[in-house]
Design a protein around this nucleic acid. Structure first.
Lengths: 202, 202
DNA sequence: GAATATCGATACACCCCCGTATCGAAAGTC
DNA sequence: GACTTTCGATACGGGGGTGTATCGATATTC
């Protein structure tokens, strides 16, 4: 979260190990009990860390949760950058595959669903996690407009919604997992619907 | 929840009004605070009912929630039935507008998100709420295939995902509310992408 | 009218968590 | 070694929810 200071201050340094343990415990508790299902004391116990150590770093539960989420998601990687279609497919595939490697699949739905009772928490989450990823999506679509494959009057934000909502919904509801061909069908259907009028769909 | 007995027993009968108030309060609290965000006392206070009255009917919070969800079972209305485009638009508009009138779409995502705590609850809900609504969507699309407006090799389930996921995501994340023109853009983009010939866009 | 069951209201003991304070020990810098 | 900061552990008051018990009032049946 905070880069270690270049000049070390006097006194015992904060244990990075304790910090990692607290973040990991927060993620596990989020996944298994939801936002309201645990407290700071449970975080400390699960992490095997004193409650004081938790409060010293994060003054509130919201701050702890947001940091844990950022720590979990990491920096969003840019798409390969070849074709628009290939990039969109890669982004959708990543949305499908990446959450299954860590706890994101179990946690993100809970966070998003808590929007009404913790608006500030969700706002921070949108700022630090959702928005950067949307921006990557929109950039690819914008590239498609400039290169002529997508009609220029297309609403980039709406198309972003249209494309990433299905896998997002699947992650939330855990109803199913799309196969590669199904993702291709989604992308191709949308791209065909966005082809400049009077032109052939590639 | 239990149908009134045919032969009335002696003593003051249970107030159906208090029961409705408790169920309604449970739904409102579910929608606004989630499964873990409230307790029996909050239900009694919100309903304007004594805590005893709640405990007399439902021995535990889970029982109360299950009954409240069952009480919420609403038959999804069929679409107007004119054109495929009009029906899809009507369904999307309803998904956008209904959450304020009916608590179902506000509660459903939360229940689904809490699936790890109560898997049996989620299963019942998918069966009795989600699936009927999906079926209505799919029926309209199927009609479009038969009438020739939609290519016959389109995956109806996937197109259902594609169309209803954006408003569903909006309902879950509360990020925004689509305007009518934006819903039309979504429907038209998908329908154009599903045109049988695949050559010219109308 | 007598009996019965529910009503709202209130009280109670119990438990859990919050957020802070305190303590001695440990780990660093000067 | 002196100083500083964090460590784990523990204790504390406060707040709030739980589930039960009790109370007089009310509504209904017999």
């Amino acid at each position: 979260m905070v880069s270690p200071p270049l000049v070390r201050k006097p006194g015992r340094p904060r244990s990075a190990q304790a910090e990692q343990a607290a973040l990991q415990a927060t993620l596990e508790l989020l996944a298994s009990h939801g936002v309201h299902g645990f407290g700071m004391e449970a975080v400390a116990n699960t992490a095997g860390v004193a409650k004081t150590t938790v409060y010293r770093r994060w003054p509130s539960k919201d701050d702890l949760i947001v940091d844990a989420l950022v720590h979990m998601k990491g920096e969003p990687a840019p798409p390969p950058g070849d074709s628009v279609r290939g990039d969109l497919l890669a982004l959708l595939r990543r949305m499908r595959d990446q959450p299954r490697k860590n706890l994101a699949l179990r946690i993100t739905p809970r966070i998003v669903a808590e929007g009404e009772c913790c608006p500030q928490l969700v706002a921070k989450f949108r700022d630090r996690v959702v928005r950067p990823r949307r921006a990557i999506f929109a950039a690819v679509l914008q590239r498609g407009i400039h290169s002529g494959g997508i009609r220029s009057d297309a609403d980039v934000e709406l198309v972003t919604d249209l494309l990433w909502s299905p896998p997002l919904t699947c992650n939330v509801s855990r109803a199913r997992v799309y196969r590669d061909e199904e993702l291709e069908f989604l992308v191709d259907t949308v791209l065909r619907g966005l082809a400049p009028s009077g032109r052939l769909a590639p």
